[in-house]
Simulated scan of single mutants.
Amino acid sequence: MFYVWNSKHRRWVARQKRGSVGRIHYVPPSLGECYYLQILLNKVIGPTSFEDIRTVNGQVYPSYEEACFALGLLDDDKEYVSCIKEANAWASGRYVHSLFVMLLLSNSLSRPASVWCQTWEDMSDDILHTRRIRTKNPVLTLQPEEIKNHALADIEWLHRNNGSTLSNFPDMPSPDQRYVISSSNLLVHQELLYNKDLLQDEHSTLLSSLTSEQRCVYETLMAAVEHQRGGMFFVYGYGGTGKTFIWKTLSAALRSKGNIVLNVASSGISSLLLSGGRTAHSRFIIPINVNEDSVCSIQPNGDLHNF
């Protein structure tokens, strides 16, 4: 307010005209402590040090985030805790994990670590049952720390599928890497999580509803897979002729046998009609604006590269 920096002589000089309008640059919530420091700089009057900024009613808080809460500048996330607990009462553990990941990615949580500490048991209540099924050991027992790591590993897989990671949230705990890399490829692991018994029932229902023309397409493609002949097939038909129905039947048939199916479409709306569908641009990292120098940004030796 009273001095200005003279870059030519490299020294502070008295301001000729008193008064100035300062500006603090925007900081996104994903930057953690920098974001909370920005909030405090707009609220705390006349601080003389960074310790002063973290001081509220004579108490020095260990972080800027804690100081923000002490000043009542942030929500307490109670509604999100209640939301997760309510969802746990009727939804699967996988759904609750997806809900928590969505809240993290949308920067809706003021204190993610606090929400995790209050809800991790709710988000982990099916871990033991799931692990017993996968290991085919009905008497398997897990310690609380092991259950927590399994839940965190599942949340980490969901984050990576959305191009993020738990390490982007400094306050959030990260799973032990032994649980994260239990599968050599996280994408393969995710594609093999489908319930084969349910898919077999779904396949039987869908197969019985195929028309003769649809069944011909189905049998041709299934024969190519079973005999490992491979190939490229083009199915043409007007809207409403049952093309998506064929893809659903094929997907259920192959996934029920433990095979991997990548359903992709050219548009987001079309991909929603397919089981586990995604756009081709998202799955294969195809650039939206394509020119003669465009390439798919698949990282060498990454999970997608080794899929």
Rank of each mutant, 00 (worst) to 15 (best):
F2C: 06
Y3D: 05
W5T: 05
S7P: 01
W12T: 04
R15P: 05
G19R: 06
H25D: 12
H25P: 07
H25F: 09
G32S: 02
Y35N: 05
L41F: 11
V44R: 03
V60W: 05
P62T: 09
E66F: 07
E66I: 11
A67K: 02
F69M: 15
L71D: 00
G72F: 03
L73F: 11
L73M: 01
D75N: 11
D76H: 10
E79I: 05
S82E: 14
C83S: 09
K85G: 09
A89Q: 13
G93N: 07
G93C: 00
G93F: 03
S98T: 10
L99T: 00
V101G: 01
V101Y: 07
L109P: 03
S110T: 13
A113H: 06
Q118W: 06
W120F: 04
E121D: 06
M123N: 03
S124A: 14
S124H: 01
D126I: 04
L128H: 02
L128P: 00
P138S: 07
P144D: 10
E145D: 12
A151N: 05
L152V: 03
E156D: 01
L158Y: 02
R160S: 06
N161M: 14
N162Q: 11
N162S: 09
G163H: 01
S167L: 12
N168C: 13
N168A: 15
P173G: 03
S174N: 13
S174D: 04
S174G: 14
I181D: 13
S183V: 05
N185W: 08
L187K: 05
L187W: 08
L192I: 05
L192N: 01
L193M: 15
K196W: 07
D201C: 13
L206T: 03
L207A: 12
S209G: 07
S209H: 08
Q214L: 01
E219Y: 04
A223E: 12
E226I: 04
R229A: 07
V235T: 12
G237H: 10
Y238M: 14
Y238C: 10
I246W: 08
W247L: 10
K248D: 11
T249C: 04
T249R: 01
S251T: 15
R255P: 06
S256I: 00
N259L: 13
I260E: 08
L262W: 06
V264Y: 05
V264T: 13
S266C: 10
S267W: 00
G268V: 06
G268N: 02
I269A: 00
S270Y: 00
L272Y: 03
L274E: 03
R278P: 00
T279I: 00
T279R: 10
S282H: 11
N289L: 12
N291A: 03
E292A: 12
D293H: 15
S294Q: 01
V295W: 12
V295I: 15
S297E: 14
S297I: 10
Q299Y: 11
N301I: 08
G302Y: 02
D303E: 08
L304M: 02
